[in-house]
Design a protein around this nucleic acid. Structure first.
Lengths: 199, 199
DNA sequence: ACCTGAACACCGTTCAAGT
DNA sequence: ACCTGAACACCGTTCAAGT
């Protein structure tokens, strides 16, 4: 019954293996940013100077490669949530964190979808990182709610929906994606702040 | 210099051609809903009972097939915007229209992306329909702004960003996508209403 | 005017042979 | 333990031959 955990890529100890592993990751990051999460694996291998079998040996699935390529960024986000927790201005802290999260989520086309799926699917390589991120964001949200700055009826899942939507727009709004993503987030945040007059 | 207009599929006059055209469209709609916009064209043709060449004859590109499959829905949205214009409650009218737009945009996985691209790229088959929709939405927005119910600093492009984000969430939020899409839209709408107290 | 299906190209994935 | 590249499978796309 216990389905085995998802495959998490590990950097090999042997010199040639480690070198190839690094080269593939660097090549993959470039390709993902240029062509999105469905970039050609053969191209990635070729540009890393290895045969296709070597890519598969280190990263048996595309999801494993994506996980490895985005691992550090996700860890940074979790660390950032922890360091922002307990901030004097919880709303400011939440806004700052969401902005960096949106930026990371839209590193390349297709990443938001992968992370969103990972958030609710334990069988994906990025699930652990996503769950950690989810709880980091939830903490910042509940602090902002306790301080009365954010409406009490917003759930963590909804926070991530808003965040994902902003990231999707940032990645897909062709003319001036970055700025539009920021503007989008600001609109959304003003939508969840607690207005004394609003019911 | 004048790049030729994008290909728009037309229903053939001859009986066998019309029959196949309809069968392919029906099969495509089913496939898109089940597998998203990148469903296998060979499967679509097979399930329609025609050879792959027949599919290509009627719909030379995937974009042309998607356009034909979503044409009626987009036309409905444009008509709906026109009939809602001049409503007594412009905010209510805008909210109603956005809700149907979100529902149509998330008919199948990948559609939001296609429509968003079409909105700003004249070379795509769906561009004309998207432009009509854009102006329909813009009219409803500006009416709601003139009535003072929606903040004046929201642009039509931003409205469609909000709409697209909601549609993306609706299509991709795995547990309970539909409800989450609605909730998302409500949050976003409350974010753009004009608050007397807010600056 | 429309249909068929073989042919070609491309890419993901596996695996036997090698160091 | 790691690497290579041929082999297979699958699918998108074109086109010559047919009605």
């Amino acid at each position: 019954m216990a389905d085995n955990p998802p495959y998490i890529a590990q950097r090999p100890k042997r010199a040639d293996g480690a070198r190839n592993y690094d080269a593939i990751l660097a090549s993959a990051r470039k390709a993902f940013e240029a062509e999105g999460s469905d970039a050609s694996l053969e191209d990635i291998a070729a540009r890393a100077g290895v045969a296709i079998g070597t890519l598969y040996r280190h990263f048996p699935t595309r999801a494993a490669l994506v996980e490895a390529a985005t691992r550090d960024g996700l860890a940074d986000l979790v660390a950032r949530a922890e360091s922002l927790a307990g901030d004097d201005d919880p709303l400011e802290a939440l806004a700052t964190w969401m902005s960096s999260a949106v930026r990371h989520f839209s590193t390349f086309r297709g990443l938001v979808g992968i992370l969103t799926r990972s958030m609710y699917d334990e069988g994906t390589p990025s699930h652990a990182a996503c769950a950690a991120m989810h709880s980091g964001g939830a903490d910042l949200l509940s602090a902002a709610q306790r301080s009365g700055q954010v409406r009490a009826d917003v759930t963590p899942d909804e926070l991530f929906d808003l965040l994902s939507g902003a990231a999707w727009v940032r990645e897909n709004a062709l003319p001036g994606g970055g700025e539009r993503g920021e503007r989008y987030l600001r609109l959304v945040l003003e939508g969840i702040v607690a207005h004394p007059r609003a019911r």
